[in-house]
Design a protein around this nucleic acid. Structure first.
Lengths: 207, 207
DNA sequence: AATACAATCGCATGAAAATGCGATGCGTTA
DNA sequence: TAACGCATCGCATTTTCATGCGATTGTATT
């Protein structure tokens, strides 16, 4: 039996979720409020939720901005964001903030129930459309015409690992000046002029 | 009707998938091989797959290492990785390499079919357990006790943006030596000794 | 009042990085 | 064959970074 909290300002949807989940065997709705502020004031030691279903766009304090606060007070609680949008930046922000799942509001109730079961089981519920957006975040953004050669790529990897030119030279058994030359070429191709920019580009998937 | 290619060295599983998918209305298995090399040799203009189901651990060329090559030759083909493991680094590598989905081998056949349908529909199939791992990648790793101060954080952000000490000093209207001092403190707290390491840590969510 | 730490600044030094200019050999492609 | 890109190496210079040692001020905690 899991305690669920619903934070949603659309009263109709909230009531729907509340009534639906209350009639399930495995879930109990202990909190059902329409703002983050109400949630924190209703929260007590007796009704700590195992799972929070929260809208992102709330009146007052936004759902995605309260994530860290929730995580501090309730470190063991799973948070699932509800949304109508699939804006990648927002998704990313929520996941960085500590959300464990991300559902579209138009999901059927049975699906939501299934997702909550998955969550209780250690998985993460994610609508396929959301999953696609998340995956796209990982993937190389725009392919640059001037791609790096294998050797240049090696050197870039070395930079990301925090190696100095000298260490890279040793690693690949080439001279320090050769490393310098490759770096020059990388800078030219990427249109940058510092290690820092190369590392940032690489880790942001732009290389 | 979607063309499916199966690349899987476990003959039993491959045959199972092949027969199952062949009997579906919406899918047609045009290629069914046990290695990446065989896949490329069987590939022709007539049997270009819409979706590739590929094992990760293959004999010879590994599945996750061939992703870029596949994406070059078949840019419009969706690639779904099959795996028994849920190793985060491997998952991350595949998604960066261009995979659109990631399924555990022990998924029921009906579920695999459902996932493929989702994929054809523009979503991304992802086992809940995998989704959890992916999400964990976004989230702050281990909270460090010695957190950075606001100013130190400013300086770190500057470094990530590729600014030199001098530029950071100008940006925040402090002296070059003060920037140096903050950098010293950051290095001590993070236990590193180069710009590169700080940037890497920051972009990997470890700060 | 004492301790701790954040934020600021200065001087100095050796190491590393960024860049300019040069070069050779080896493939591929026009 | 000529042109091009890749990988390799060398020397020199300027800038930036990393680090050592020192300092003052203010704020918060004990």
């Amino acid at each position: 039996m899991k305690n669920i909290a619903i934070i949603e300002d659309d009263v109709e949807l909230r009531e729907l979720l509340y009534r639906y989940l209350s009639h399930q065997n495995d879930f109990k709705c202990t909190i059902s409020v329409n703002s983050m502020e109400d949630f924190f004031s209703e929260l007590s030691d007796e009704n700590k939720p195992d799972i929070i279903l929260s809208d992102i766009g709330l009146p007052g304090k936004q759902g995605d901005e309260s994530l860290r606060e929730i995580k501090e007070k309730l470190p063991d609680t799973e948070i699932v964001m509800l949304t109508v949008h699939d804006d990648p930046d927002r998704i990313f922000k929520c996941l960085q903030g500590g959300a464990s799942g991300y559902l579209l509001k138009n999901s059927p109730l049975e699906e939501i129930k299934k997702y909550l079961t998955i969550l209780a089981d250690g998985g993460s519920p994610m609508s396929p459309r959301i999953a696609r957006k998340v995956i796209e975040y990982f993937q190389p953004k725009q392919k640059l015409e001037k791609q790096l050669t294998e050797r240049e790529y090696d050197i870039v990897v070395g930079l990301v690992e925090g190696l100095s030119y000298k260490m890279i030279a040793n690693k690949y058994d080439i001279s320090l000046d050769t490393v310098r030359q490759h770096i020059r070429n990388v800078y030219r191709k990427l249109n940058v002029n510092s290690k820092a920019e190369v590392i940032t580009k690489k880790l942001r998937g732009e290389i």
